[in-house]
Computed example of a mutant assay.
Amino acid sequence: MVLKTGKMLFTVLLLLFFIAGFAMAEGKQESAAGDVMVSDADLVVDFAEVQWTDINSTTAVTRIVLEAMGYETTSKIVSVPIAFQAVSTGDIDVFLGDWEPSMRSITKPLLEEGEIIDYKTNLTGAKYTLAVPQYVADAGVTSFKDIARHAEKFNHRIYGIEPGNDGNLLIQKMIDNDAFGLGDFELIESSEAGMLAEVQAVTKDEEWIVFLGWAPHPMNTVHDIEYLADGDDYFGPDFGAATVHTITRVGYAEENPNLARFFKNLQFTLDLEGEIMKDIADGMTATNAAEKWLKKNPFILNDWLEGVKAVDGRDALPAVRENLNI
């Protein structure tokens, strides 16, 4: 009798084991079919942000959408090298501002060692190289090769932005290598705002200046400028043509499948960033400028939120539109 009862118990346990195994297999099949569940390991998304208007814009609009989905977000303002270091150590989840190829000297070793993930390109058609006011270009400075010939007019100075920035590093490398005869030039480091204030000051009297320029940015409409040719070995071809990439910490996509889908969808445009940056330049906060843009252009959410869930399990698109009242 005891033996018979024991056999029955063993049979029941074996049956339960197979049922559980089947349920787990079925769940895996659903996941393989592409269903995205909100099983994110962490409902807080930590961003790195550098003090550039374009990255302030993209980070602000991204945080607004994520918070409307039910996530919490943080953002730490750091220098470019610290941004990548923080992602590589896992202290930061996402950085939306990897400008390539200018940042390649920073990103290449980290990527080769598997310390960060180049998740996707989030902007194409960007530009990042040296620039001069149009009247300086009209006077004959259209190439990196022309700068040294007019060293006195430039006061032997090239204006960059914050210390540690990749663009500054490239300028300093040119000076150190005496590339284009720039060996006796000095790199003036400041900030985006400080550099542009200097541009504003000297252009009033049509004085000469060469500085680090990029697009998208309001400087391209506020100032009449021209980008210089022949800097391919430092800033890339086609007058510093650039792409901007989303960088994540290792394992982030696997740990956060819903967020992985969102960041895979997240794509910016020159017009999007240009409009938000213009409002920031006019005195709005990045958050308010991003909110204004989203209310004016809610259609973008159709692409960004395809296949994405809100934290409460609803489809993200109606949840976000409801929470943002758009």
Score class of each variant (00 low, 15 high):
L3W: 11
T5K: 11
G6T: 09
L9Y: 05
I19T: 15
A23S: 08
A25S: 09
E30F: 08
S31F: 10
A33F: 12
G34L: 06
G34N: 01
S39L: 11
L43F: 07
V44F: 06
F47Q: 06
W52N: 12
D54W: 15
T59F: 05
V61S: 00
R63A: 08
I64S: 12
L66G: 02
L66H: 00
E67F: 01
E67Y: 01
I77T: 13
I77L: 12
A83Q: 00
A86F: 14
V87F: 05
S88M: 02
G90R: 05
G90P: 05
D93C: 15
D93V: 11
L96S: 10
S102H: 06
R104V: 11
I106N: 07
K108R: 12
I116T: 06
D118C: 09
Y119K: 03
T124P: 00
K127N: 07
A131Q: 07
V132K: 11
P133Q: 06
Q134R: 11
Y135W: 02
D138C: 03
V141D: 02
V141M: 01
K145I: 13
D146Y: 05
I147A: 00
E152S: 11
F154N: 03
E162I: 02
I171H: 05
M174Q: 09
D176C: 10
F185A: 08
E189K: 13
E189D: 05
S190F: 00
A193M: 11
L196R: 09
V202N: 00
K204H: 06
K204W: 03
I209M: 09
L212A: 10
P216Y: 02
P218K: 04
P218M: 10
T221P: 02
I225Y: 08
I225E: 03
I225N: 08
E226Y: 01
L228H: 01
D232C: 01
D232E: 07
D233N: 07
D233Y: 04
A242L: 07
T243Y: 02
H245K: 14
T248I: 13
A253Y: 05
A253C: 08
E254Y: 05
P257K: 11
P257I: 10
A260I: 09
R261V: 14
K264V: 14
Q267N: 13
T269M: 02
E275K: 15
E275D: 15
E275G: 10
E275S: 14
K278S: 15
D279A: 13
M284E: 09
I300S: 01
I300V: 15
L301P: 04
N302C: 02
L305T: 01
K309P: 01
A310K: 07
V311A: 03
